[in-house]
């Protein structure tokens, strides 16, 4: 029942090797999703685990704990370096917080990885009683709304130029971004890995394929932030 060193499992052969940061959080759901899409998955706990991976998922979890463990494991430097050199990444919830430039409502000693030019507010909706499910249209994600599960979720407070807002929700009378993307890095405030929606993971795999130049059909790129469906994309009725 304990996975072997580093390798979690998945397809073999020429399948892309995707890391899942495995210091804490819902690692298993991300690994299962990636394996179901044909990836090989490596649990990343130490710098050496990053060596063979061509993309990474930062999972849901407790961002203060994760931030501390990223430092103590020696992963901060190598992670920042790989992300800066263009490694595709997907972050959900705590993962989105970690990939931000600035964390609002975090601990004073909590340092983000500063990958996306955005400011993220932790626990923006409040405590667990405010955790919710809703259907959400996401720009560039075909096939209907995503069923989004928000758990003590963050929201994006502001984004810099070059960060596309792909979906937003209403909070205290304002629309707040909850899915953003820049280059090959995608973040979501909710958990597609626990609702079982593979489309953001497919986007990550398409990014990995395009980076490696493999002849793999990539999904349509999300629309520009200026498109009519951009910033205003919001929730639809939940059936």
């Amino acid at each position: 029942m304990s996975p072997g060193p580093a390798e979690v499992g998945g397809a073999g052969g020429g399948a892309p090797v995707v890391g899942v940061l495995a210091l804490q959080g819902d690692v298993r759901e991300h690994a299962a999703m990636l394996e179901s899409l044909g990836s090989r998955v490596v649990a990343v706990r130490r710098p050496a685990d990053l060596e063979g991976v061509s993309g990474i998922v930062l999972p849901g979890g407790e961002s203060t704990t994760l931030s501390m463990l990223i430092d103590s494991s020696g992963l901060r430097g190598p992670l920042v370096e790989r992300l800066a050199s263009g490694m595709p990444a997907l972050g959900t919830c705590a993962g989105m917080i970690l990939l931000a430039r600035e964390i609002v409502g975090g601990r004073p000693d909590q340092r983000p990885l500063d990958t996306l030019d955005m400011s993220v507010r932790r626990n923006a909706f409040g405590r667990q009683l405010e955790s919710f499910e809703a259907d959400l249209d996401v720009v560039g994600v075909d096939g209907g709304p995503m069923h989004a599960v928000f758990i003590r979720a963050p929201v994006v407070e502001d984004v810099g130029d070059g960060v596309e807002v792909l979906a937003s929700v209403e909070l205290a009378g304002a629309l707040r971004p909850v899915v953003c993307r820049s280059g090959v890095v995608t973040v979501a405030a909710f958990h597609p890995e626990i609702s079982g929606d593979p489309r953001l993971h497919e986007l990550l795999l398409a990014d990995i394929a395009s980076r490696s130049g493999a002849a793999r059909p990539s999904r349509p790129r999300p629309g520009s932030p200026d498109s009519p469906a951009g910033v205003g994309a919001s929730m639809t009725a939940h059936s």
Partner: peptide
């Protein structure tokens, strides 16, 4: 069901209850 128009949200579901436990894994 939340009352705000156009943004139907459900709280207190089995999915969000178990979901928080899933986020605490490895901790």
């Amino acid at each position: 069901q939340s009352a705000s128009p156009g943004t139907a949200r459900t709280t207190g579901t089995v999915r969000v209850k178990r979901g928080l436990a899933e986020m605490l894994r490895g901790g």
